[in-house]
Nucleic acid binder design. Structure first.
Lengths: 336, 336
DNA sequence: AGGAGCGGTTGAATCGTTTTAATTCTTGGG
DNA sequence: CCCAAGAATTAAAACGATTCAACCGCTCCT
C-alpha cells in the first residue's frame, strides 16, 4: 500500500515541494529543464495529487452538487448531462443527488454538499428551502434553482414556464374536440405539478363547456400512473374522461399501460386522448406514441451551471431568473 | 461570508478543539454536560464540519465512485440506486460517472476518483483496465467490476451470465419457430455485447436449419438501433430476418421504432419477432411490449457495494466473483 | 496518608497541498 | 569586475479536523 506525495516527487526530482506544486499549477514560473525533470518524476512514481489537501487549502472543492427529484426520470438525467458538459468545460465535475421527492433526503444532500464545501449547488427543490440556500450563500456556496422559479428574487433560477405548458397541453386537447378532461398529477406541493394544473385551469376557464377533473397521485412515477389509469377503468363509461393530461411522461406511460392492458382494444386515442409532459426519449416509442410538452432539458442544465459559475466568481452579482418556453409535440396519442 | 471552524465552536463552548472533535466522533468519551454545551454551540453557530480536512487526516473519503457505460440506460441507473442504498446504510455516498463507452472519459473518471481518494471504485468497464485497478488497490482503493467478470481472478466482480442470457433469448426465438435470426449489437469490445452473441451462437449451433446474421452497430443506443432497423427495411423481403435479438432494450426500442414507423403495418411480431435485453421499465410500455432478458439490476449494485466494503475493511480478503442468472420475460414482441 | 486508577480534558502533531516572502542564482550594463 | 534586476527556487506558514500522549483532579483502597 504505497502512498506517493509531493514530498516524494520533490525528493526524486531533487527540488523543493514548492517547485513541484508550481510545475503542476504554474509551469510558466519554472525553468523548462526543471519542469521536465519534475514531470518525469511524477510519471515514474505514478503520483496523483490528493484532492482533499488541495481543497482544504483553497476552501472549496471542484465539484458542483446537483439534487434532482428523481434520477429515474430521463428528464432529470438529461438536465444532469447538460450540467455535466458545461461543468467539464470549466474543469469541474458534478455529483448527482437524488431526493426522491423526500424532504429528509433532500436535506441530507444539502448537508453533505455543505460539508464538502462544493463549488455550488443546483437543486430542483421539493420543500421550500430558500432560507437554507441563503445561508449557503452566506458561506460562499452559490445555489441555483433548477426547473423552478424562486419565490425570493435574490436566488437565481432556471426554469420552464409550466403554466404556459399546462395551458398548451389542454388547449390542444380542447382543439381536438375533447370536453371532459382529467389531470393526473401529484403531490401538489411540487410546484411543477401545481403550475401545470393552473395552466390547465386557464385553458379550461375560457371554454365553458369543458370540465376539468383532478386525479391526485402521490408520486410522479410509472407505478402511480398505472394505478390512476386502473382507477379510471373501473368507472362506468359515461363517467370516464375523454382526455387525460398527465403531469409528466412517466405518469402518462403508466396510465397508457393501464388503459391498454385490459384488452379493451384501442382505447387511446379513440376513446381517451392522452398527453404527457417532458417529452422524454421513450415517449415516442410508447405503445401509442405519446404527445407531450417538450422542455429544453440539456439547455436548462447548461444554463444553470453558467449562472452558478458566474455567481461563484463574483458573489455580489445580481440574481437572474431565466425562463424557457415549452413546446407542444403532437403524436398519435391525441390525434383523432 | 462566514466561516465556522471547530476552533470557533471550542471557544464558544469554553473547551478545547480536541473535545469538540470528540463530541462529534466519540461522544461516549465526553461528560454529558460538556456534550450538551458543545452541541448547543454547534447549533448556535451553524457549524458544519469541513470534509476536506477530515479526509486529509484519515486518508480516504466517504464516497464510492461508480463508473457506468451509459447513464441514460435505466439498467445502469437501477444499479446506481441499488449501490446508493447499500452505501447509505454504511454512511457513504456514491458519485456517478458516465464513461459513455469512451476510453478517455473512463480514464478521466478513474483519475478523478483516485485524486479524491475515494473509499472504493465500482466500474462497468469499457477498456481493459485490470492493471489500473490493481494499481488502485495497491494504493488502498479497492475496486469491484460491475456487470462484467474479470479476466484476472484477483479483482472481484458482480455480473450476470450474459452467455446464458444470449442463449435464453435465441432459444426462445427458435422455439417460436423463427429460423433467420439477426443479432444487432456493438461495439464488440464491450464484453456484454460479445457474450450475448456467443450465447446466441450456442443456441443456433444445435439447430442446423437456423442462421445467425450479425449486424454490428457502434453504440448501444436508441439512435443506433433505429439506424439498424432502417437498414433492415431496405432489404428485399426475402433477405430480411424473421427474428431480431438486440443487444439491449435501448437498441431494441430503436429497432422497433424504425420497423413501425414506415407504415408497413404490424411488422412486429408477425413478420419479425424482436427481443431485447435488460428488461428496463420502459420495455413493457413500448409500441409493442418488448420481450427481454431480465437482470437483477438493483441487486447487482447492492452486492457490489457489499463486496467493496468488505475489501475496504480488510484489503487482504480474497476476491470474489458473483454471477447472477438472467431470466426470460416474454411479451407481445415475440408472440405469434 | 499515599498512591493507584479512572474519567475527563487538553495541546500539539499530523495529514498533503498551495502560496508567500525570502533567498539564491544569472545575466547584462556600466 | 561589480552591481542591479530579473529569474528561479526554497522554506515555512496555512488550511481545519482528528488523534494520541500527557495531564488534571477525584475517589477508593490499603
Amino acid at each position: 500500500m504505497t502512498v506517493v506525495s509531493v514530498r516524494d516527487v520533490a525528493e526524486r526530482a531533487g527540488v523543493s515541494v514548492g517547485t513541484v506544486s508550481n510545475v503542476m499549477n504554474h509551469p510558466e514560473k519554472v525553468s523548462a529543464a526543471t519542469v521536465a525533470r519534475v514531470r518525469s518524476a511524477i510519471d515514474d512514481l505514478g503520483f496523483i495529487r490528493n484532492d482533499a489537501a488541495r481543497q482544504l487549502r483553497d476552501g472549496r472543492s471542484k465539484t458542483i452538487g446537483l439534487i434532482v427529484l428523481d434520477v429515474r426520470n430521463p428528464f432529470f438525467t438529461d438536465i444532469a448531462r447538460g450540467a455535466e458538459d458545461q461543468a467539464a468545460a470549466a474543469g469541474l465535475t458534478v455529483t448527482l443527488g437524488n431526493s426522491d421527492e423526500n424532504t429528509d433526503r433532500e436535506s441530507t444532500y444539502l448537508d453533505l454538499f455543505e460539508q464538502q464545501r462544493v463549488h455550488g449547488v443546483l437543486i430542483s427543490p421539493y420543500a421550500d428551502i430558500t432560507q437554507r440556500l441563503l445561508r449557503l450563500r452566506k458561506r460562499g456556496i452559490p445555489a441555483v434553482l433548477v426547473d423552478r422559479t424562486s419565490t425570493d428574487l435574490s436566488v437565481s433560477s432556471v426554469s420552464v414556464d409550466d403554466i404556459a405548458g399546462g395551458r398548451l397541453a389542454v388547449e390542444h386537447l380542447i382543439a381536438q374536440g375533447r370536453r371532459r378532461i382529467a389531470y393526473i398529477g401529484g403531490p401538489m406541493e411540487i410546484r411543477q405539478v401545481a403550475d401545470r394544473l393552473e395552466g390547465a385551469r386557464h385553458a379550461v376557464a375560457v371554454n365553458p363547456d369543458v370540465t376539468l377533473d383532478v386525479i391526485p397521485i402521490d408520486a410522479l412515477s410509472v407505478i402511480a400512473g398505472r394505478a390512476a389509469g386502473a382507477e379510471i377503468l373501473t368507472r362506468p363509461a359515461a363517467q370516464r374522461p375523454d382526455a387525460i393530461f398527465a403531469a409528466n411522461d412517466l405518469v402518462a406511460m403508466g396510465v397508457l399501460q393501464a388503459l391498454m392492458m385490459q384488452g379493451h382494444g384501442m382505447l387511446v386515442p379513440e376513446q381517451i386522448a392522452l398527453i404527457g409532459y417532458d417529452d422524454i426519449d421513450f415517449a415516442s416509442a410508447a405503445v401509442v406514441p405519446l404527445s407531450s410538452i417538450r422542455q429544453p432539458s440539456a439547455l436548462i442544465g447548461q444554463t444553470a451551471v453558467e449562472i452558478l459559475l458566474d455567481e461563484a466568481a463574483d458573489p455580489t452579482i445580481e440574481a437572474r431568473q431565466v425562463v424557457f418556453q415549452p413546446e407542444l409535440v403532437v403524436r398519435a396519442s391525441t390525434r383523432r
